[in-house]
Design a binder for these strands. Sequence first.
RNA 1: GCGCCGAUAGCUCAACUGGAUAGAGCAUCAGCCUUCGAAGCUGAGGGUUGGGGGUUCGACUCCCUCUCGGCGCACCA
Length: 584
Amino acid sequence: MTVSPLQQFQRTIAGALASSLGVDATAILLEKPRDANHGDVAFPCFRFAKERGVAPPALAAKLAGDLASALPSVSAKPAGPFLNFTIDRAIFARELLPAAFRADFGGAPPSGEVIVLDYSSPNIAKRFHVGHLRSTVIGAAVKRICEARGARVVGINHLGDWGSQFGKLLTALRRFGSEADLDKAVETEGPWRGIEYLQDVYVQYHIEEKKGADAGRELAAESRKWFLELESGADNEARRLWKKLTSISMKEFERIYQKLGVTFDEVRGESAYEKDLAPTIEMCKKAGVTRVSEGALVIEIDGQEKPALLQTGDGTTLYLTRDLASVFYRKNTYHFTKAVYVVGGDQLDHFKELAAVVKKLGHAWSGDIVHAHFGMMRLPEGKMSTREGNVIILSDLIDSAVDKVNEIMLEKNPNFSNTNRNSGEVAEQVGIGAIIYHDLKQDRRRDIVFKWDDVLNFDGDTGPYCQYTHARLASILKKSGRAISESDLGSLNYTMLADAGPLLMAIARFPAAVEIAAARFEPHHVAQSAFDIAQASNAFYRDHRVLDAPSPEVVAARLAIVEAARRTLERSLQLLGIAAPREM
RNA sequence: GCGCCGAUAGCUCAACUGGAUAGAGCAUCAGCCUUCGAAGCUGAGGGUUGGGGGUUCGACUCCCUCUCGGCGCACCA
């Protein structure tokens, strides 16, 4: 599908306005009326009225007269300086329902765009906490949404599996713990316990480090030694331990990704660029953009006081070096039209630097590097920190959410809860749906202060509300005893949907939400659309009986719109990564 | 100190990138379960969009400035 039914009507309206005004159709900007009672599409007359030297309301009235005959399926009413259009419900429904029944509703054909999407990218040897959730669920949603809009998206998990912190970690393991204890932890309780053990010794490292300048220097020296050994590329003790830590971490991450339904096309950590680092540095040197400052290799950035660091005085590489190597790898491997990084806003400077360096190296595609940054997840007490030990572990949150859903299901729908074998699975879908929706419903740039009561609230603008509405719609269809398919739509009497305006419009606006979400890498527009459809659905089946409607014709028409709403709701949730169970 | 990101109803957030009387959810209060599922629905109160200037026919949106909060600021990632 290229153009949605609503967009189709908008084009028709724009065309009629354009010919009446004697301008190009692209100059006509239509918008959504602020108040739905005004109409479906609005045209503000200010600009053209000014050009013509007439009052906007006069122009609106004149255009309404001109268009009366030109648009048989649309009524145009002037309202002050605005011209409001209302599309005939029956005619619109005939176009909309078949479109909404399609699995690719809201989508677009292949666009030729190739997006390399970097998301999740957790650090090895740290437990997956709710702070890591943001990049993971935003990225996964952006991937689905952009794919729906016709892009080829390569999802990459750029694991934090390299860097000097491994020197610290290995020092900590040797000094404050032992490999034998680590192995035991993993064997007896699982990978997650192994990671906790590593975190414990890491925390101990920082406690010792703070004890005094001498102790700090000694630890730092030992850490540097370990990381140098690791970066030497030799098959040594450092490498053996590093591999072990990575493998333990990956097992735990995979368990989480599976629960969240998150997948990647490539799991390729920073370590994968090990052999590209020296050539990358060499390339920069050759380009003549580097200089040595205080023993380190740096690149000056325009408009920034401090230069970007490429290599430390010790000769080890840095974050930027690895991101530079990886962006070239991505360009050469995938020939992306956009490289999008779903990474926290605390790294805005870093990605600005990355793009600036690429530009300095003479590549016009530096402009295709997009940092889709997001606000940080904080606790009411302040910043979350693995080091401080004040984090919410994601699997604990998931367990709490699922427990609560089970409780509610037992109370509200005991029959389902007790007799259906899938109820446990559904509880997990709803619990996780609540967590994902909570993260995706707002503009990604805003910080989120984590509050248990907020995440575990299932009323109102929440994932479970959308899922519940979906289950209600599914329940009506199930009770009807019929399966509504596309082939049923041709014989419907669409005039029976003349009173379904708000629900029709909520469904009709879904494609535009997907489009804007894809263009801006902002999933919350899709979440908003899902909520709108859910609200409109609740209002619809409150006011319109479906199964015991006055005539078979009305029943058929209402079942069709119920199914269209259900499919669109399911589709919107699916794009967000949220399951849409038919019963809960 | 410099830079970046924010500030919208008591709380959490929208507002189609400049258009109409700034909308939702939560919370509060008042109602609705013998009718397709009450995780629902209806109604009410609640706003000088942080303050001040400017641009514009029109500003939550753009510019300047101040205040507050968050985050960065060279060998961590």
